[in-house]
Design a protein around this nucleic acid. Structure first.
Length: 770
DNA sequence: TAAAAAATCGTTTTT
DNA sequence: CGATTTTTTA
């Protein structure tokens, strides 16, 4: 009775091409689908799940692992259309992390965790690492906590424990990192928390724990499907191997040309060795592209063929030839953004919506200039990625309060909120409480509860500690008979957080209050539709949510995002900005062949997002770290077959291609904005510093009036480059640069005693000597 | 103890 | 440049 046979008439195979049909109708045994960009792989995966259900496989025996929650949601939505809602709901579809978090929540006790364990994101991880470094007296200036975090994460991705890492550590950095790794593991465990890597690692541990647990999950997940297989790491590979070992019903879809997460531990061997691991594997190639014009497809092929390491394939399309690809050079990043904004205005008309246009860039920092340009022209836009809603400070604080409520043994979380708002427990008291906890082998929260037994503590601090513990306990007592969203609401109201922001009273603070209210609303919506779930489930969801999952994509807005975020998406028009050497391909210290190939795959991903139009832009100069840098066009531009490209802004130029006159006029125009003395101009040409001040002083419409007002108030407005000044602590020095305006105006001073310093003129007491 | 001032640091990309 | 961390001062 559990199957809806009336729907079994739907012919799932009807609109598929022969290869897609083969892949969809393959039921038992291992299957590798090599799916080129735009070849309909998501469609095949979805059809296949529907086909399995139609062939009497129970939906709850199907595990479909996707790269984002959004992809999982879409898949479920389409399955619901083909089969029915209750079947689609029963399929286990989600990201590796969210599915395994769910299972680990159930099995936590088997691994020595409590089921209320908290999930640490990269920020939480970093602050724990810093804390550990403090307690081990490892200087943070000498050993970068970031670097240690990536070492720890890389180890976990390769399933190397701290014991093994310490054994093989030779450099001083590795030795220190190993010490931190060890202590980090001890603390994260005693905090009853898991980081993102642990969610996968602990899943392997769980499956290896006993034959009966392994049997249980092998029986549960009789059919396994994995999307974006080229971006799985070794731990994910292990999990899949263990789960598929008995029944071998594993189907993976991937494209080695789109592997862009090697830096995160993705291992291309997973896809290359699939046949070795599953000798009976059937391989199907999807090579017809349904997405892009011939021109765009040719361009992508001409780029990717420069990579040596790749599986040979021949993508083709029946789509029309399409328009040529535009390449546009701009003076600087601001002009580039203005050009793009203008272009979007021109393009977005009756035949194309703004939501069919996306602008892609290599680094999140590039969004700033674009956002300004769009705001200036009132073009609606949406930024995906960057600072996600759930990563905002006030939201993380509220979530930390809730995490503490569900898991009081998490010292890290308690540390985060104890002075938010300030409640009279400063550094000294906190140190006493922490030491007391360590000596007694109890959690920090327990040490708060028994603060009156703590001799080192001031009377006032004891009172404050006990008051805080009572506040938490009062709400812990309510957990079992209050709905989580209502509990959260009154808990946060009593926390003092809201009052804190109300008192601050700035626009920023009221934004934050708004966000907190939004979060509480989001919670009640969540628990309205999932009344059987607990507070921990909501918290897990927020930790694992990606920015993309949260955004409302129905409004007509231009999308801005990084190339990484764009994976798996498609738009009618794609604009890729910042095609410059060093930015894209992005170059850090030294640049290996492998890294270059990964950058090129990223470019390939970017190009193949476009259905009809592609526009590539680059700037000759770019503001970086507040300094102007000259840029060279990306070598990737040269890799596209020249006959596919056109340069629309070169048309008006003289035949030898020189654009000097135009550029010179622009340059002269920008000079005329300068307000500083001639002396500044000459010394400025010697280094980037002064020319950067010149750049940032050009007022834009947005804050011009504000600037001029502040200029008048500023006492130090008379300072010039070259002035010899005296500072109360640093002594004598010479001003070598001035930048910023109004209250943010800064001076770069070369002091005789301490060398180059940058000082805020608003604060620094500078006296002109000559 | 907490707020204000000053210095430092940083950039890939994200589940 | 901006965000974050450390130091100073009230």
């Amino acid at each position: 009775m559990s199957f809806n046979f009336s729907n079994s008439k739907v012919d799932i195979l009807e609109h598929l091409n022969p290869e897609q049909k083969k892949a969809t109708a393959h039921i038992n045994g291992p299957l590798l689908i090599i799916a080129g960009a735009g070849s309909g792989k998501t469609r095949v995966l979805t059809s296949r799940v529907a086909y399995l259900i139609q062939n009497n496989i129970r939906p709850w025996n199907i595990l479909a692992l996707t790269f984002t929650n959004k992809a999982a949601k879409e898949m479920k939505h389409r399955i619901a259309e083909i089969i029915d809602v209750s079947s689609s709901e029963a399929v286990w579809a989600g990201t590796f992390h969210s599915i395994f978090a769910r299972i680990l929540r159930i099995e936590a006790e088997n691994l020595g965790y409590h089921s209320s364990f908290t999930i640490y994101d990269a920020d939480d991880q970093l602050s724990l690492i810093k804390k550990v470094m403090d307690s081990l007296n490892i200087p943070k200036q000498q050993f970068s906590p970031q670097a240690i975090r990536s070492v720890i994460s890389a180890c976990k991705n390769k399933m190397i424990g701290w014991e093994e890492f310490l054994r093989t550590a030779d450099t001083p950095f590795e030795k220190k990192a190993g010490e931190v790794f060890k202590e980090y593991e001890i603390r994260i465990r005693s905090n009853n928390a898991m980081d993102f890597d642990d969610l996968l690692l602990n899943m392997v541990k769980l499956l290896n724990l006993s034959q009966s647990i392994l049997d249980k999950y092998q029986t549960k997940f009789k059919y396994i499907l994995v999307d974006e297989y080229q971006d799985t790491n070794r731990v994910q590979y292990q999990i899949l191997r263990l789960l598929a070992k008995a029944h071998q019903n594993i189907c993976v879809v991937g494209d080695d040309a789109q592997s862009i997460y090697r830096w995160r531990g993705a291992d291309i061997r997973n896809i290359l060795d699939f046949q070795k691991d599953y000798p009976t594997a059937k391989i199907i190639r999807l090579e017809q592209n349904y997405r892009s014009t011939k021109t765009i497809l040719k361009a992508s092929n001409s780029v990717i063929k420069n990579n040596k390491n790749q599986i040979e394939k021949a993508l083709w399309t029946e789509n029309p030839e399409g328009e040529l690809i535009d390449v546009v050079e701009c003076d600087d990043d601001r002009k580039e953004a203005e050009f793009i904004a203008k272009k979007v205005m021109e393009n977005a008309n009756d035949s194309i919506n703004k939501k069919e246009i996306a602008i892609l860039y290599r680094t999140n920092a590039q969004s700033l200039a674009l956002e300004n340009a769009f705001r200036m022209r009132s073009i609606p836009y949406i930024v995906v990625g960057g600072l996600s809603f759930f990563k905002r400070k006030e939201i993380k604080d509220v979530l930390a309060y809730l995490k503490l409520l569900s898991n009081p043994s998490d010292d890290q979380t308690l540390n985060r909120i104890i002075n938010e708002p300030p409640r009279g427990i400063g550094k000294t008291s906190l140190d006493h409480l922490t030491n007391f906890a360590i000596n007694r082998g109890i959690s920090l929260f327990e040490s708060f509860q028994v603060a009156n037994q703590n001799n080192g503590l001031q009377k006032r601090a004891i009172k404050a500690s006990i008051k805080f513990a009572e506040f938490i306990n009062k709400f812990r007592d309510l957990i079992d008979n209050t709905s989580p969203d209502e509990l959260a609401k009154s808990f946060i109201e009593e926390s003092g957080l809201l009052e804190m922001y109300e008192e601050i009273g700035t626009d920023e603070a009221s934004d934050r209050l708004n966000n907190i209210n939004q979060l509480l609303t989001d919670m009640s919506i969540f628990f309205k539709s999932n009344s059987d779930l607990k507070l921990e489930d909501y918290l897990a969801q927020t930790s694992l949510a990606t920015d993309y999952d949260e955004k409302d994509m129905t409004q007509d807005r231009v999308t801005l995002m990084t190339l990484h975020t764009a994976k798996g998406l498609e738009y009618k028009q794609i604009i890729i900005a910042g095609l410059e050497q060093g930015l894209f391909p992005l170059i850090r210290s030294e640049f290996s062949r492998d890294e270059e190939e990964e950058e090129r795959r990223l470019f390939y991903v970017g190009i193949t997002r476009a259905k009809e139009n592609l526009l590539l832009t680059y700037s000759r100069r770019r503001l970086k770290f507040g300094e102007i840098q000259n840029q060279i066009p990306s070598r990737f531009l040269d890799e596209i077959s020249p006959e596919l490209l056109e340069y629309p802004n070169r048309k008006s130029l003289n035949p030898n291609g020189s654009r000097n006159n135009e550029k010179m006029n622009d340059f002269l125009a920008s000079l005329s904005h300068k307000t500083s003395s001639p002396k500044n101009k000459w010394s400025g040409s010697k280094n980037n510093q002064a020319s950067s001040s010149e750049y940032s002083q050009i007022p834009n419409n947005e804050n011009y009036s504000q600037l001029s007002q502040n200029e008048i108030k500023n006492d130090n407005a008379h300072l010039k480059v070259g002035d010899i000044v005296e500072h109360s602590t640093f002594g004598k020095g010479r001003i070598s640069g001035l930048k910023g305006a109004g209250p943010k105006r800064q001076a770069v001073v070369r002091f005789d005693s301490v060398g180059r310093k940058m000082l805020m003129l608003k604060y620094a007491k500078l006296r002109v000597i000559e």
